[in-house]
């Protein structure tokens, strides 16, 4: 199951629809890193609100996506982490330090609008 990637102006938006397998996430990483190049995107928003869990593999891969897109000139914002998912992530010992997060798509777009190309992190 591939994750559709939409383009809105200079922003690529990937909405995760379902529980993801590891391969789906790797595929998303590869798709985004190539598309950021040829689409000249300055921002990437990954909406994870439909994700059932964020385990260590998912967190590590999302962090990897943020690093790769940054090198390719685009800022990644992860939006929609659900409260239950965030709670479990913290207990597991995971964090997304250095990756910009937002509550929803609007916040994601605002964070990209504010940021410079490839500027990861809050503030």
């Amino acid at each position: 199951m591939g994750i559709p990637i939409l383009k809105l102006g200079h922003v690529l938006i990937a909405s995760i629809q379902d529980a993801l397998t590891d391969n789906d996430l790797i595929q998303l990483r590869d798709d985004l890193s190539s598309q950021v190049g040829w689409s000249r995107a300055t921002g990437v928003i990954i909406d994870v609100s439909a994700l059932d869990v964020m385990d260590s593999f998912a967190t590590r891969t999302l962090r990897g996506i943020a690093d790769i897109t940054k090198l390719r000139g685009a800022k990644t914002v992860i939006v929609g982490i659900q409260p239950d998912v965030a709670f479990a992530m913290i207990q597991l010992g995971l964090d997304l330090d250095g990756v910009t997060t937002g509550l929803d798509l609007d916040e994601g777009l605002a964070a990209i609008g504010r940021g410079d190309r490839g500027d990861a992190g809050h503030g």
Binding site: A19, D52, M54, D55, Q82, P83, A88, Q91
Partner: peptide, 27 residues
Amino acid sequence: RQMGRALSEQVGFQGSDLTIIATAISE
């Protein structure tokens, strides 16, 4: 992890506990 969540829901777990159990199973 989906089976774990479904079974836990039948047992009576709710909300964040379901996500916690599913996350542990995933790992």
